[in-house]
Design a protein around this nucleic acid. Structure first.
Lengths: 148, 148
DNA sequence: TAAAATTAGATTGTGTACAATATAATTCTA
DNA sequence: TAGAATTATATTGTACACAATCTAATTTTA
């Protein structure tokens, strides 16, 4: 067994599967004027609006160098707006616009469509999800349960 | 169950685990003057040298827009060189330099070190690998067994 | 066999990713 | 409480990713 053989790498399938799934999102996200990272930010905001950028970054494991241009695009597209937290002027608070809230309705079917495209059975989905969540914990990527 | 909740997305853990593992490669690849995509190209060449760019692209699921600059960097760093196939002048044939061949020796421990860093047991590794290979086939990413 | 279609790479443009650095606001601490 | 450390975000520079388009070489086919 040659450890330097591509087929023996654990990372490579994560890398290529991740890219492949993101490509399959594209036909469903493009009509909403969203890229995949932009969609992730919207998911976070649909869960809880009025969130500081730092929190979005922690949730998505993305730093400001990545998030700043992503949020800028969402602002240009009219989905979110930003303001500073008066209690801490460093914090940039991101808030959905009406358009951004309405978009949630338009995105409602995206997860189901992606599941169709991936063609996984319910059991497979659950099995994969468990392993991924498991590995996320092992890698320290899982979120700490927070009360706020 | 809200399908638009981040925790119910299958793609997101692939996306963040992939990025996390690549980050953990960095300390081991940087001394070799390689990024992760550059390392992948070298893995392919260490398996079989003198390969057309198209074949590397098929193997790694990367198009010319991505590979052209990656290979350019490998050339600048002295690891590979390119020439055209005389039988088909469209094909760009990529070949390891002596330096590029020697690099394989320096990279020999990278997979083991990554395994250490990930902290997976042998059983976990096998379990994850099976799941990933399985899903790669389902998504049409697995390579067709070729004779050449 | 000449025009049409295909294939291999390169280029352009947009959008991430992230390390490193900078700046301003806030908190800590001697 | 003033200087030091920390925190939140922005900026810069490098390097992918990929869609779309382009050019040139090869293959197909009418």
């Amino acid at each position: 067994m040659n450890p330097l053989h591509l087929s023996n790498q654990l990372c490579f399938p994560f890398y290529s599967i991740s890219k492949e799934i993101i490509k399959r999102y594209q036909p469903y996200l493009a009509p909403l004027n969203l890229t995949y990272p932009q969609y992730l930010v919207m998911l976070v905001l649909w869960e809880a609006d009025h969130v500081p950028l730092s929190k979005i970054g922690k949730r998505l494991q993305l730093d400001s160098g990545t998030l700043t241009p992503v949020v800028k695009k969402l602002i240009v597209n009219g989905y979110v707006e930003k303001s500073r937290n008066p209690d801490d002027e460093r914090q940039l608070v991101i808030k959905l616009t009406e358009r951004g809230q309405a978009l949630q309705e338009e995105a409602r079917d995206v997860p189901a469509k992606i599941n169709d495209v991936l063609g996984l059975s319910a059991e497979e989905y659950v099995r994969y999800k468990e392993m991924l969540d498991d590995l996320s914990v092992k890698l320290g990527l899982a979120e700490e349960k927070e009360t706020c």
